[in-house]
């Protein structure tokens, strides 16, 4: 399909993309794993697995559990660390003509800053996605994302250390996402990713044990799409920076719903696990929708929800 057509071009916080479809962090590895199935040059952007200041070993097993139309995970951000990422993983991605966005996580402000500084001077990083919403860490991670003051301070600090486009990934596990979204916008973020996984748990009734070693985990997949759409819609009404919508997108139609709710781009996550080519099928699906709707640009669709009032 003709994805070179510029009807799909978007600019997310300064990152120019050929189409608005990204991979969600943690669901696409470091880009090379799906090489047999996905031509990275056909994606809008690749968002790689979260990196931290030092390598993290991750949580014990079991780490995942399927739930109705979804899955729980508590991986615990097992990753090679920022130095390992830059030395071993980033060079592969530089061979492609696709923006690379690096998801960054930490337990303290200092850890976030360490990673951000190193990525800022590394070759081939198009942008940073600040992960302040990982639900599977004892401290740090989500604690920044559920507190408007902490979120504001962290983003402000990071902003002073990098000129790279800065996305911040929001947690759905809050009472009012708009308060946090506004605090992050005011602190200088260029775009918002919404949403991270929903905190959940699964129990084995026979053994009375939790299904995950971490007891709780993050819920993803189609099960969370209605929640994600609602949160994207709420955030869209309260900020003016672009939103990358995600949460249960399996098809082009799912993605279109996120644009209508107010997303300027989308990320495909858990669907990659089920179908390695899901991200490309979403690109094709959006393109077909625009053609059928006779729209010249995806921008016409953003926030186009029809409401009778």
């Amino acid at each position: 399909m003709n994805t070179q057509n510029n009807s799909l071009n978007v600019n997310i916080g300064g990152i120019r993309m050929r189409n608005p479809v990204m991979t969600a962090s943690g669901t696409f590895g470091y880009g090379s794993e799906y090489a047999d199935f996905v031509d990275l040059n056909r994606l809008g952007a690749v968002v790689v697995k979260g990196v931290t200041s030092v390598p993290w070993s991750g949580n014990p097993m079991n780490r995942i559990m399927e739930t109705p139309s979804g899955m729980l995970n508590a991986i615990g951000l097992q990753n090679v660390g920022v130095d390992g990422f830059i030395a071993e993983k980033l060079p592969y991605l530089q061979d492609f003509d696709v923006p690379v966005i690096v998801n960054v996580c930490g337990k303290t402000v200092e850890e976030y800053l360490t990673v951000v500084k190193k990525l800022t001077v590394a070759e081939g990083v198009a942008g940073i996605e600040l992960n302040i919403s990982c639900p599977n860490l004892d401290c740090g991670g989500m604690s920044f994302g559920v507190n408007a003051k902490l979120a504001h301070e962290l983003v402000k600090e990071v902003r002073t250390k990098t000129q790279l486009p800065l996305l911040v990934k929001l947690s759905p596990n809050v009472t009012d996402i708009t308060v946090i979204a506004r605090a992050i916008e005011e602190a200088g973020a260029d775009a918002l990713s919404a949403i991270n996984t929903l905190l959940g748990m699964a129990i084995n009734a026979e053994t009375r044990e939790p299904e995950l070693a971490n007891i709780t985990g993050g819920l993803s997949g189609p099960a969370i799409k209605p929640v994600a759409l609602r949160l994207v819609w709420e955030v869209y009404k309260s900020v003016s920076i672009p939103i990358v919508g995600m949460g249960g997108i399996m098809t082009g139609t799912d993605a279109v719903e996120f644009f209508i709710a107010g997303a300027s781009a989308v990320a495909v996550g858990t669907a990659n696990f089920v179908n390695p080519q899901a991200s490309l099928e979403v690109v094709d699906g959006i393109y077909t929708y625009l053609e059928n709707a006779d729209m010249k640009s995806i921008k016409e669709l953003v926030g186009s929800l029809k409401i009778d009032v």
């Binding site: 590895g29 794993e33 799906y34 097993m61 079991n62 899955m71 990659n272 390695p276």
Partner: peptide
């Protein structure tokens, strides 16, 4: 054997603990 998500090395859901030397374990 283990529960698997992607089976392609991406989700890190199916790990098991492996000694990489006498003392250090890696998933």
């Amino acid at each position: 054997e283990n529960r698997m998500g992607c089976a392609m090395g991406v989700c890190l859901g199916c790990v098991c603990p492996v000694y990489i030397d006498d003392k250090r374990i890696e998933y």
